[in-house]
């Protein structure tokens, strides 16, 4: 009798059985990314565990966005490797990413969410049900039929989050989702991110906003000039910075 070393679950999807063994933890080993002569990420090593919110923290140009794109598979590392606990054929479909500037389709709010669900092969009635649910949970129900691209910045970002969340991703990458928002809109987005994490999705958020990290994150991955200079709990990072660079960043004295 064969025995699996890790639990394997199965769910129905697109008319066939799909392996739902958890993707996480994700191990990044010796990750490097070069563009021409520039080394933008250099020997990056870390592990992302399941659950909670991890903040990828660092000054502008540290390589936060790049790291998220590598993890999400939008870019390939020059060297090094990303090792998921399990690598299914639908790896990308089990993740989602929201970009700093929301990228919305030129259609209605509801149609934006429906599109993402259609791509995942959901039947029409299930798409409608999930779309209504997402709109209600993100406070966008009243705007369902409005063209997505005429919404305010905060509403657009909420819609981008709703679209990403609709696919029920195991890991959600967020690239400075509140960077261009006013305080009220930023707080709404942060509450939504917390709700998404509480629903079971792992959230990895790139940010340089220290207050935001304190408010919503549990773990920190501190990045500077393409290197990881610290990883640990938020509390530990703020109370006892792992090195002088991190301490300088917390004091607002670190420049790229």
């Amino acid at each position: 009798m064969r025995v699996c070393s890790s639990p394997v679950n199965w769910r129905r999807g697109r008319g066939h059985e799909v392996n739902t063994t958890p993707l996480l933890p994700l191990r990044c080993e010796g990750l490097c990314f070069r563009a021409g002569d520039l080394t933008l990420l250099n020997d990056v090593n870390f592990t992302l565990e399941a659950g909670g919110i991890t903040a990828v923290l660092g000054p502008n140009g540290a390589g936060k966005t790049l790291l998220l794109k590598l993890c999400h598979g939008l870019l390939l590392p020059t060297t090094g490797r990303l090792q998921w606990q399990h690598t299914p054929t639908d790896l990308r479909a089990r993740q989602a990413m929201v970009f700093q500037k929301p990228v919305l389709l030129r259609r209605s709010v509801a149609a934006n969410i429906e599109f993402a669900l259609k791509v995942r092969g959901l039947a029409s009635d299930e798409r409608s049900r999930r779309t209504r649910d997402m709109l209600a949970r993100t406070g966008l129900a009243a705007l369902a039929e409005r063209p997505a691209r005429v919404l305010s910045g905060g509403e657009q970002q909420r819609l981008a989050l709703a679209r990403a969340w609709a696919g029920n991703p195991e890991i959600l990458f967020l690239d400075e989702p509140a960077a261009n928002l006013d305080p009220a809109a930023a707080r709404t987005v942060e509450e939504l991110i917390t709700t998404i994490a509480a629903s079971g999705s792992k959230v990895v958020i790139a940010t340089h906003d220290l207050a935001q990290v304190r408010r919503i994150a549990q773990d920190v991955l501190f990045l500077h000039r393409g290197r990881v200079l610290g990883q640990g709990s938020v509390r530990g990072f703020f109370e006892c910075p792992p090195n002088e660079t991190a301490a300088a960043f917390l004091r607002g004295e670190l420049y790229w």
Binding site: F99, V103, V119
Partner: peptide, 16 residues
């Protein structure tokens, strides 16, 4: 330029 990363993130094939 605007949509390429979103489409890649949604795992759309080239034709789609």
């Amino acid at each position: 330029r605007e949509y390429a990363e979103l489409f890649a993130s949604l795992d759309l094939g080239t034709l789609r």
